[in-house]
Amino acid sequence: MAKIELSFYPGCSSQKGATSSNYLVSAQTMCEELDITLNEIPDWNCCGASIGYGGGGELPRLTLSARNIALSEEHNAGQEIVSPCAACWLNTREAKERLNEDEKMMQDANTALAEGGLRFKGEVNVRHMVEVLVEDIGFDAIKEKVKKPLEGLKIAGYVGCQTNRPFGIAGESFENPQYLDKIVEAVGADSIPTFEKKVQCCGGALAFSEPEKSQEMIHGIIEAAYDNGADMIVTPCPLCQANVEIYQDQINETYGTKFDMPVVYYSTLMSVAFGRNATDAALNGHIIKAKKLEEIASK
């Protein structure tokens, strides 16, 4: 397999002691196995996520991402930017496209960036980690790396919103993308094609500001996974993961359910299937333990 080098934008939630630090650990394990080198963008900043617009407006928000792109173009020249986070990827790619389409906006952003001695060219590709898996690595190559197939596990592929819209993965449908189910199959588990909440919104940032409205949607997502016989849910998005996992106690209280559904990342599945241990797969980073994965990892 050819070695791949990428300019890496990990994002705030993946840092040590933050909500998706377990995503970063498992993504790094996965990349080691697939011979992907991640060169962190030096001094990257927050992208504004999906709620920063409320305080930052348009140009300041786009400028945040333009700064990251400028840093990447300066320090990791010639390398495509990749992020494992849906919002980081979306904002960075959006900024790149918007500034390239709008000459005045590009000028304004560069006037702002000049205050910090930076310049945005906007020529670099901005990709999500799953694009690299799907397009550069491929399902067959993933399958070949599997040492411990996740046999007998039924896993609901929850793609969520921002990995899927507005950009999505090339060639996939917005309404019923297939790649996550194909990754589940590639690591030897069973996907659930009838899982109807695959692209349902979890509330995103509004899980904080409108918890009841969001938890109603999260309840629906977990309920559908249970009713389809899922052992666990898998997602490519850090906010989807957190929202669907961590509020299950509160949802059980509100709805009288007994949900205890693990929610993991594709990188968790791949780390375990590639034969790495529970620590490398960051299984200790889950509130609801993925016991069946722990069993396979300890074999």
Binding site: C12, S13, Q15, A18, T19, N45, C46, G48, A49, I51, G52, Y53, G54, G55, G56, A205, F208, S209
Partner: peptide
């Protein structure tokens, strides 16, 4: 929340959850 998030990220350039 939008304002809190923005003020938070602008303090150090990264979100302090």
């Amino acid at each position: 929340f939008g304002q809190i998030f923005w003020d938070n990220l602008m303090k150090k350039g990264r979100v302090n959850e």
